[in-house]
Every structure is written in structure tokens, then in C-alpha cells.
């Protein structure tokens, strides 16, 4: 088997975020680079939030998937060379978040001046933007809490960062 970057990325689509098990690390933008030199595969990863307790699990899951597919000559690095941004989440990833009931983060291009950016997050249940931010901090570091004034549901949003 000839290893290519695309082939590795395809394999890694299997690795999901342990706290949001519908989105792969590839779609989440956490996999920042793959290098193949001779038979050696290097996978670079970057944390979403530096205090995220799921990062060590994610790294181990990447190692496990590589091993399972017979790629045992590898190095998996978790570092900050690339700073993670919610803008790195793919369109497929955003669709998966919405289906899961999490409002996907708005594209921000590194301009987050105040909480207005998440004041009226789009409700993942009814698509209304007549919503209210309840708190910028939710059940995990990457989520905020909202209430939809249209359908009356409480919902969470993946924070733009």
C-alpha cells in the first residue's frame, strides 16, 4: 500500500471528538498536518482549548487508528504550531454539529470584539435567529448556552474562537 496524505486523512475521519461524537477530528480542524517521509507518518494536531481534557484521548485515538490500519511507523504530535480556530471547522463538520443539535460557530476571520457575535446564534432546531445568549460558558469549554425565543428550546452553540 502506498501511503498518501489523502489516504491518512480518510483513515482519520474515523476518529471522532469524544465529547461531540458526530464530528471527526479532520472536520474539526484539529489535524493540522500530515507528513510522509519514506514509510514514516507524522500527524500534527493542535488543541481546541488548551484546558480541554479530551485532547489526550483524541491523540490516543489517532495512534490507535494508525496502528489498526497497519501503520506502526508513526509520530503523533500535539502542539501549538498552528493555533486552532473555529474557522478551521469544515462545512461537513458544521452540518454535523447542527444535526447533533449544536449551533455551528459563525465565521469570524479573527475578529471577535464582543459577545454580540454569539448574541443571536441560529437555533439548530428551527433556524430562527430570534434567540438569546444565556452564557458564553457551557457544559464544555467550547460551548455557549442559548435560548430560542421562537421555538422555546434551550440549545448550545459551538463558540467562535
Amino acid at each position: 500500500m502506498t501511503l498518501t496524505e489523502d489516504k491518512i486523512l480518510e483513515l482519520l475521519k474515523e476518529v471522532k471528538d469524544p465529547e461531540i461524537p458526530v464530528i471527526s477530528l479532520v472536520d474539526l480542524g484539529v489535524i493540522t498536518g500530515i507528513e510522509i517521509e519514506n514509510d514514516h507518518v507524522t500527524v500534527n494536531m493542535t488543541p481546541t482549548f488548551i484546558g480541554c481534557p479530551a485532547m489526550d484521548y483524541m491523540k490516543q485515538d489517532v495512534v490507535d487508528v494508525l496502528n489498526k490500519n497497519g501503520i506502526d511507523n508513526h509520530t503523533v504530535n500535539l502542539n501549538l504550531k498552528t493555533t486552532w480556530s473555529s474557522d478551521l471547522i469544515s462545512d461537513e463538520g458544521k452540518r454535523a454539529l447542527k444535526k447533533f443539535g449544536l449551533a455551528p460557530p459563525p465565521v469570524h476571520n479573527n475578529v471577535i470584539e464582543d459577545l454580540d457575535i454569539i448574541e443571536h446564534a441560529e437555533c439548530p432546531n428551527c433556524d430562527s435567529t430570534n434567540t438569546t445568549l444565556k452564557s458564553p460558558f457551557g457544559p464544555t469549554l467550547c460551548r455557549s448556552l442559548h435560548h430560542c425565543n421562537s421555538c422555546g428550546e434551550a440549545f448550545e452553540s459551538f463558540k467562535p474562537i
Partner: peptide, 13 residues
Amino acid sequence: RKLKGEIKYHVMH
């Protein structure tokens, strides 16, 4: 650079 983005939420809060 990483912390700047996180602490911004603390400041906004």
C-alpha cells in the same frame, strides 16, 4: 497566541 483567544471570553464575560 492560543491563550489570547480563550481569555477574550473571560474578559467579555
